[in-house]
């Protein structure tokens, strides 16, 4: 009985409150998303990543940093599921703790990239004129850059380390978001509700933040999810080159880099972290494809 009423509440033709309208929006999109089994797998992978990161202290037996030199380079066994590395650390534990670092990278890049992209894009799109021209020229310049090489050069200046790698990635990633936000702002700018808000005396900044920004969020979210795999791969690549997270941090790319010399005889040392990266970036790609099909059915394949 409650099931039916909840469903009818969620699918009511005219929402009674703002809360109901929001819930309806989420529910209808969820119904569309649910129809895509591949996207659901992606969602499961990402939820799994978050769960593993949150539960890390309870599902590991060590902090992944302690050395046990007597147990170095042991093959996978019931005691060490993924074997041990060159310093006797359990690879399974390091992978689990490394998931926190992956999430940290993802969160940090998003926090930097989305606001920069949104502000530049929305201001350019809403203001138009020479402001638009200047900001978009800047965006185009950043869009045209080779990302990995530029990130490497930036890390060389800022110094090696996880935070600097993230900063370098963020500085080379924000431009597509500005493009998207600008396109959205351009279409919204002349709509009637914006005019209504302006007539009511809402300030420009108020209009930009309260009315334009929320409408840009769905396309920005889709793009962010699709870009996430690339961000993770770049961060892992910088880690692999020794420019990102530094040992003994259990960052997956750095783990591959350290395990490289054991490839031939102890294949599990560099191989397992690579599988972890593959699974997570696959998860983001699948989820991103699914979200795009829901929010932007035209551009989907």
């Amino acid at each position: 009985m409650t099931e039916i009423t909840l469903r009818s509440w969620l699918l009511a033709e005219i929402p009674g409150s703002r809360l109901q309208a929001r819930c309806q929006w989420a529910f209808i999109n969820w119904l569309a998303f649910k129809r895509n089994p591949v996207a659901l797998i992606g969602l499961l992978i990402i939820l799994g990543l978050v769960a593993v990161a949150a539960l890390a202290p309870w599902i590991t037996t060590s902090n992944g940093l302690e050395l046990h030199l007597s147990e170095r380079l042991q093959p996978p066994s019931s005691e060490h599921w993924f074997g041990t590395d060159e310093l006797g650390r359990d690879i399974y534990d390091r992978i689990i703790w490394g998931s926190r670092i992956t999430l940290y990278i993802v969160a940090l890049v998003s926090i930097i990239v989305v606001p920069i992209g949104l502000v530049i894009g929305i201001v350019a799109g809403y203001m138009g004129g020479w402001v638009d021209t200047c900001l978009m020229r800047l965006t185009d310049i950043f869009l045209a850059f080779p990302r990995l090489i530029l990130a490497m050069a930036l890390v060389a200046t800022l110094g090696r380390g996880l935070e600097n790698a993230v900063l370098a990635i963020a500085l080379t990633t924000w431009s597509p978001f500005a493009r998207i936000a600008r396109a959205e702002a351009l279409t919204i700018r002349n709509s009637e509700f914006i005019l209504a808000a302006r007539v009511q005396g809402v300030s420009t900044i108020g209009i930009l933040f309260r009315h334009v920004t929320p409408l840009c969020m769905s396309s920005v979210t889709v793009r962010l999810t699709l870009d996430m795999a690339g961000i993770i791969l770049t961060a892992a690549g910088l880690g692999f080159l020794g420019l990102g997270a530094q040992p003994p941090t259990p960052e997956w790319g750095a783990m591959i880099s350290l395990g490289r010399q054991y490839l031939i005889d102890q294949w599990w040392v560099p191989t397992v972290p690579g599988i972890a990266i593959l699974v997570v970036s696959l998860g983001f790609n699948l989820l991103g494809d699914g979200l795009r099909d829901v929010f932007d059915p035209k551009s989907g394949s």
């Binding site: 795999a229 790319g253 591959i256 490289r260 191989t271 990266i277 593959l278 970036s281 696959l282």
Partner: peptide, 22 residues
Amino acid sequence: SLIGYSAPIFWLGMVALLIFYA
């Protein structure tokens, strides 16, 4: 193409070396 998109290229290279060379 999904795997090509998602796999870290340096890892793929190592695995390929392990299989096809070693």
